Amino acid sequence: MATIRKLRGRWQAQVRRRGMKPRAKSFDSKADAEKWARELETQVDRFGMAPDTKILETTTLGQLLARYQLEVSPTKRGFTQESQRIDVLRRHDLSHRTLIGLAQQDIVSFRDERLRAVAPSTALRELAILSHTIEVAIRDWGMPLAKNVVKLVRRPVVRNERSRRLAGDEEQRLLDGCDAGKIVFLKTIVILAIETGMRRGEILGLEWNDISHNRRVISLSMTKNGTSREVPLSPRAFQALSDWRELADANESAVFPMQPGALEQAWRRLLTRTGIKNLRFHDLRHEAVSRLFERGLNVIEVSSISGHKELRMLKRYTHLSVDDLVSRLGEASPVAAHA
């Protein structure tokens, strides 16, 4: 057991264990002294020895984030967005906390403060970055932390499920609106999204070499969830790509030379031209996944096309047409027919 005592106006914690040199440290409060002693004893029990915690006393969370931003983030497909979030985290007061002083309550206070300023989904993403940064520091960088304090904190509840699907003549209005716009390949992008369920980043990241015309398949080497997959093309999607190929610059490797921000602006202008309300580009992925189920594909087949790893997530994106389900159930059951 650790010894906690008041010495010359400060609280001193001392940890003695057989086979190790006694360790002592002074704090302004008794609670901080007890916390340090508990964590050190936990590390001794875990590693069989008392790790050198001096590096934790001199390293700040901001320094960890800077290293993560330099070494880990560039390996991810969403590097740009994550890097921007890390910049926000590094400007926050939390980043000045040393690792030895970083406590669960610090993360709770950060979470609650951010929830007053941003949407729950944004706060959740920021907490995920903090958690993974600390996890990498423990597993790969040798930081002698006893635990990942971010994992001990309750995450914000995000309720952003959408059931928006294309209704009536909205699909045709979108396509006609594309024809009336200045971006010649926007119609191809919309068709590809509706037919394949590919994400915006996957579509904009396509290169002509990713498309096998003989097999009628798109090969995605890196996706949002970090794995590769092949996406089969429907005749409609394949024809749209083939038509665009005839018009595209032969020296351009990218299928759609456009940045995400430009597509977002083009999408808003398209909705204005067509008078369609409350439709996000990502809703086309909902539409595509739902149509795949309505065509009779099973969960495994749909997930292999859409790239969903969890059935829970796939269910969120799937909103089947009730009228279609009624027709597939048939007009009457055999029992009802003989009643």
Rank of each mutant, 00 (worst) to 15 (best):
V15G: 02
R16Q: 13
R16D: 07
R17C: 01
G19R: 10
G19L: 05
G19Y: 08
M20K: 09
M20Y: 13
P22M: 08
R23M: 05
R23C: 06
R23Q: 13
A24I: 04
A24H: 06
K25F: 06
K25Y: 07
S26N: 08
S26H: 01
D28G: 13
S29W: 07
S29C: 07
S29N: 10
S29V: 05
K30L: 07
K30H: 13
K30G: 06
A31P: 00
A31E: 14
D32W: 06
K35P: 02
A37R: 00
R38T: 06
R38Y: 04
E39R: 15
E39Y: 11
L40N: 07
E41C: 03
T42H: 14
T42Y: 14
T42N: 13
Q43V: 00
Q43W: 01
V44R: 04
D45Y: 05
D45S: 10
R46W: 10
F47G: 00
G48F: 06
M49L: 12
P51F: 04
T53F: 05
T53D: 12
K54N: 15
K54L: 11
K54Q: 13
I55V: 15
I55Q: 12
I55T: 12
I55P: 02
L56Q: 03
L56G: 00
E57A: 14
E57I: 00
E57F: 09
T58Y: 04
T60D: 05
L61H: 04
L61T: 03
L61A: 04
G62D: 09
G62Q: 07
Q63D: 10
L65P: 00
Y68E: 01
Y68H: 12
Y68S: 03
Q69L: 05
Q69T: 01
E71M: 02
V72M: 06
S73C: 08
P74D: 08
K76I: 05
K76F: 12
R77H: 03
R77C: 00
G78T: 10
G78Y: 02
T80R: 15
T80D: 15
T80Y: 15
T80N: 14
Q81N: 13
Q81I: 12
E82H: 09
E82S: 08
S83I: 08
S83H: 15
Q84G: 13
Q84R: 14
Q84K: 13
R85C: 00
D87V: 03
D87S: 11
V88C: 05
L89N: 00
L89S: 02
L89M: 05
L89F: 03
R90D: 01
R91H: 11
R91K: 15
H92N: 09
